[in-house]
Simulated scan of single mutants.
Amino acid sequence: MASEPQGGLTEYIQHHLHHNVVSLGDAPFMKIHVDSILVAFLLGAVFCLWFWLMARKATSGVPSKGQAFVELIVEFVDTQVKDTFHGDRRTVTPLALSIFMWVTFLNAMDLLPLDAPSWTVKTAAGVETAHHTFFRWVPTADINTTVGLALVVFFIVLGHGIKAKGGLGFGKELMTAPFHAHNPVVVAILVPFNFLLNVVEYLSKPVSLAMRLFGNMYGGELVFMLIAGLFAGWISFLPGVIFNTAWAIFHILIILLQAFIFMMLTIVYIATAREHH
C-alpha cells in the first residue's frame, strides 16, 4: 500500500517516474540510470544462479519439483525455437531461454510495492526525507533498458545473417533484394531502393522490440501509480488492496506475454536473417 501522497496525485506520480541518475556529463547519453542497471544485473544473476543450481542437482531419475519446473520452461522454449527456426538450435535456444526468463524477471518487478524503496530507506536509515528517494523497480519501464535489449538482439541478428550468407553475400542481398532483375542496368537502378528498403526493415526490428515492451510495461506501471495515488491512506486501504490485486492478476498475463513476444520476435528475426532471398 502506498504512503499518503505529498502534494497531490500529480506530484506523487511524477516522483515515482524519476530514476536514480548518475550524470557523467551534460549530454543525455551521459546520464546513467543506476536503478535500472542495478535491478537488471541482479535479476540476471538470479536467473543464471537458479538455472545453474538446478543443472548441478539434475538427476535422470524422478525429478524434484524445482527440476521439473525448470525442465518444463526449457522444453517450452525449445519447442518454440524448433517450430520457428529450422537450423542448428544449439545457440538459438539458450539465447531464447535467456531472453524469456530475463525479460519475465524484469517485468515482474512491476508487482512489487511502489513505495518499497523509500520505505526501506526510511526504516533502515531513519531518513525522514525518504519520500525524495528516487528508485524505480521496473527496468523494462525504462526506455533505455528496452532499447539496450533490442540493440543487442539487432546485432545478434546481423551476426546470424552474415554468418549464414558470408560478408559478400549479405552485402549483395542488401543491394539486390527484394526487387530482383537480370538486366545490369535495371539492377543498378534498383540498388538504392533495395538498400533503403532493407535498411528500413532492419532498423524497424529493434524499434519495434524496444517500443512494444517499453510501452506495455510503462503503461502498466502508470496504472499501479494511479491506483496507489488514488487509494492512499488508511481510510481507503481496503479498496486500494482490491483494485491493486485485480490489476496485478491481470498484469501477470501482460508480464508473461511481453516476455514471450520479445523472445518469439527474436527467433523470427534470426530465422529470417538466415534465409537466402
Rank of each mutant, 00 (worst) to 15 (best):
V121T: 09
N244D: 12
V74E: 15
K165P: 05
T79V: 00
D35W: 05
G167P: 04
L95F: 10
L151I: 13
R212T: 14
L106Y: 07
D142N: 15
F260P: 04
M263C: 02
V147Y: 13
T146I: 02
I227M: 00
I13R: 02
F195G: 05
K65Y: 00
V138D: 02
G66W: 12
V187L: 03
H86E: 13
I37V: 13
M175G: 07
A125P: 00
I143N: 05
A259M: 01
G171V: 05
L196S: 11
R89H: 08
D26G: 13
L196R: 03
I235W: 06
A108P: 09
P206D: 06
G233K: 03
G220W: 02
V186S: 04
T272L: 09
D35E: 10
T84Q: 12
L222P: 07
P117K: 01
V199N: 06
Q258P: 01
F154Y: 07
L197S: 11
T266G: 09
W119H: 12
V153Q: 14
H16G: 06
M264C: 05
S36H: 09
W234G: 02
W234M: 05
N144L: 07
V157C: 08
H131E: 15
T266P: 04
L106S: 09
A125Q: 11
W50K: 13
G233T: 01
L226W: 12
N194Q: 12
